[in-house]
Write a protein that binds this DNA or RNA. Structure first.
Lengths: 204, 204
DNA sequence: TTATTGGGCGTACAGTTGTACGCCAATTTA
DNA sequence: TAAATTGGCGTACAACTGTACGCCCAATAA
């Protein structure tokens, strides 16, 4: 890759990173202005256009990138689980770790999931769909669940996890522990309940 | 009440209604400007201050009002359930009805729950807490659940319902039916699972 | 070597925002 | 009746926004 393309990539990264860094509990992506991001990245406002058509395009890039990051980390966690131990417990712990090390990645997904741009909502939905689908297959395979029940169960699990993540963002470490315990209980409820419903169908 | 106070109340309502009416899938409260709301309400921008300190105060009013509306409607639904039939099914149906007749009330709660203002998040959390608490007591009383388990269970139920509501906002009627069915299944899973967990504790 | 490309910049402009200030007129109070 | 209160308005201003346009110059292509 030429010197030129390399420098371009570097600036592009600076923009993405600048945007991520400006996110916080008090600052959502949609509240960032093009000029702010450019300023933080150390380039002129008009230079922004050399990399993205508009802020929307930047945001979608961030969602995709964030979703990928999240999935990679969760996959690593699942590998850890295969070494033995409760899948649920280990997955929750992994999730909490991810949350703590990448709060802003999680923020943009969380916020734009119910945001005002249809494109954003669709992008986040796609990322979440990845999670549901992976989990659904996993449950089908290991618990012998009906495809339909597996799907509904996976949706419930992912919903509960994401939602807990949202609450966790505002908390301190101690409260997060309690939350994690509650979450584990809730996930177990769903798992047990799904099992019960399955038996009911089978014996009918 | 004097003529004066009456007129004031009327304008105040006009402001709140104007704000609610401007909400949509593409427009969140935080994206509304004071001037827009004033324009829609038919008053001068500066007159806004005769009624609210700033947009934040308007928003909090809307959250409180919206939460109240929601709770009242759900309570009516629960009364309907007492006449017989599945509590879960009837509650879900009620919820869907509420959603369809007051989408914007639901929107502001949903969006500001993960919004950028701590005050808003707290206000929404308070409203949701009402739901959880009511439901938790209900489950304790009718299913004889442990307070702690009842609480965790209620949290899960409310989370699932709210989340389904969020997805439903974007859908057409037919898809909403499917969603409602899934939701009912998920709620049953949690109920069954909670029961199972309770027995486990009791027989130990 | 010369010509082309393209990332970055500065200037410029029109639009929108929140809000300070002062006035008016009608209701309310004294 | 006279005085005080108050909801509503218009004007004004500084801050900020997105983005069109044209220039520069270093990397690349011919």
């Amino acid at each position: 890759m030429g010197v030129r393309a390399l420098q371009k990539e570097k600036t592009r990264r600076a923009l993405v990173d600048a945007a991520f860094n400006q996110l916080s509990a008090e600052r959502s992506f949609s509240s960032l202005s093009l000029r702010e991001v450019a300023r933080e990245a150390g380039i002129a406002p008009t230079s922004f256009y050399r990399h993205f058509k508009d802020m929307n395009e930047l945001g979608l890039t961030m969602v995709d990138e964030g979703g990928l990051t999240l999935r990679q980390m969760m996959r690593k966690g699942r590998q850890r689980a295969e070494a033995g131990g409760s899948v649920i417990r280990i997955s929750v712990d992994t999730f909490v770790e991810v949350l703590e090390s990448n709060p802003n990645v999680f923020r943009i997904l969380l916020h734009e999931r119910s945001g005002t741009s249809a494109a954003f909502r669709a992008a986040v939905a796609r990322e979440i769909e990845h999670f549901i689908s992976e989990l659904s297959h996993y449950t089908e395979a290991t618990a012998g669940r009906t495809p339909m029940l597996a799907r509904v169960q996976a949706e419930a699990l992912v919903t509960l996890v994401f939602n807990a993540g949202a609450s966790a963002l505002d908390m301190k470490r101690a409260d997060r522990k309690v939350l994690a315990d509650h979450l584990v209980l809730q996930l177990r409820m769903v798992a047990k309940g799904a099992e019960a419903l399955q038996h009911k169908v089978e014996t009918k």
